[in-house]
């Protein structure tokens, strides 16, 4: 295990940011800390980096107790949401910073900088200043700067949070590929479940200062340990008093046993997908249903049509056998 966190707690006045966190981050993997903002995930990342102190508990990085080690001695690469680019330095000087601090020879520094800039595809921008780069380019520069020092672990705090949707998606794919090449133990913080599901090997769901669940993206999505995890990882709706995913609902136009009868009150088509709002005959909140357009047309669905709904696959948090509870 690359990072071992044991019994870490942190309060800010009356606010409990983290409470008794125990977590092992496996070597060479990409781990996502996922959760709503204010849930404590960034604080945990900053405690690992040494930018913040825990009130209690220990942090071990690659077998050494780092709890009392200052940030500069932890050999950790940190990438900030807003890049934290050194504005008065060129891209090359930014990347060289950690190496110059380590008193490497000029030749070594130059070589490493060139290698890093090639890795993040910024070779032709070496002499530019951060202000002359786009957000995505700046973040790749920050990544090169963090990786240049050959860190034991790479920590990314909402790395794509300040970028627009398209660049965000590109960088996400790119980070995954980069990680497959470089294999440095990486922990990144995100509040975007899609980002976590797509990129991470392991996801740690954090809410209100506690770990809700740890597992692979499949485990979390299919066997959520709680209603919170279920609803945070994807859309949910209430069917017969239980939380289910809208795409896990079977729709029929003829009565079936154990089904909830209702009427389609709203039909929204988004590309290949159709979203229905079904108002139960018994009254109450409308139930959301997601299905493909082909399926919807095939079943002859439309607004005003009477339907019967039931769960198509048993997904229930408390019954999940393979879910790993923290």
């Amino acid at each position: 295990m690359s990072i071992e966190i044991a019994g870490v707690s942190r309060r800010f006045g009356d606010f409990v940011a983290l409470e008794d966190i125990n977590l092992s981050v496996p070597t060479g993997q990409l781990t996502a800390l996922l959760g709503p903002s204010g849930g404590g995930k960034s604080t945990l990342l900053r405690i690992i980096a040494g930018l913040e102190n825990a009130d209690s508990g220990t942090v071990e990085i690659e077998g050494t107790d780092a709890t009392r080690l200052p940030a500069r001695k932890r050999n950790v690469g940190f990438v900030f949401q807003h890049y934290a680019a050194f504005k008065h330095m060129t891209v090359a000087r930014n990347v060289a910073f950690g190496l110059e601090i380590r008193k490497q020879s000029k030749k070594q520094v130059e070589e490493r900088v060139r290698e890093m800039l090639r890795l993040v595809h910024l070779e032709q921008f070496a002499d530019r200043y951060p202000a002359q780069l786009s957000g995505g380019q700046r973040q790749r520069m920050a990544l090169a700067r963090a990786l240049a020092i050959e860190p034991s672990v790479l920590l990314l705090d909402e790395p794509f949070g300040a970028l627009d949707a398209k660049v965000r998606k590109e960088l996400r794919d790119w980070l995954r590929r980069l990680h497959d090449d470089v294999h440095v133990t990486t922990v990144f913080v995100t509040h975007d479940q899609e980002e976590a599901l797509e990129v991470a090997d392991q996801i740690v769901v954090i809410n209100q200062g506690r770990i809700e669940q740890i597992g692979t993206p499949d485990e979390l999505y299919d066997q959520p340990a709680s209603d919170f995890v279920l609803s945070f990882l994807g859309p949910v709706t209430t069917l017969g008093g239980r939380l289910v995913r809208p795409h896990d609902i079977e729709v029929t136009t003829a009565p079936v046993p154990d089904a909830v009868p209702g009427t389609v009150t709203r039909w929204t088509r988004i590309g290949y997908e159709v979203r229905l709002e079904v108002t139960p005959v018994a009254g109450g909140e409308p139930i959301l249903v997601q299905l493909t357009r082909t399926e919807a047309l095939h079943r002859g669905l439309g607004e005003g049509i009477g339907v019967w709904l039931r769960e198509s696959s048993p997904v229930n948090g408390s019954a999940a056998p393979a879910a790993v509870l923290a």
Partner: peptide
């Protein structure tokens, strides 16, 4: 306005307080 992120980045890259002050804060 410049905030503390650049200084924190310098720290995490291994700079001590004086190096951070001289190489990051003063130029900023």
């Amino acid at each position: 306005e410049i905030g503390t992120e650049q200084e924190q980045a310098a720290r995490s890259l291994g700079a001590n307080a004086w190096q951070t002050f001289r190489r990051i804060t003063i130029p900023a």
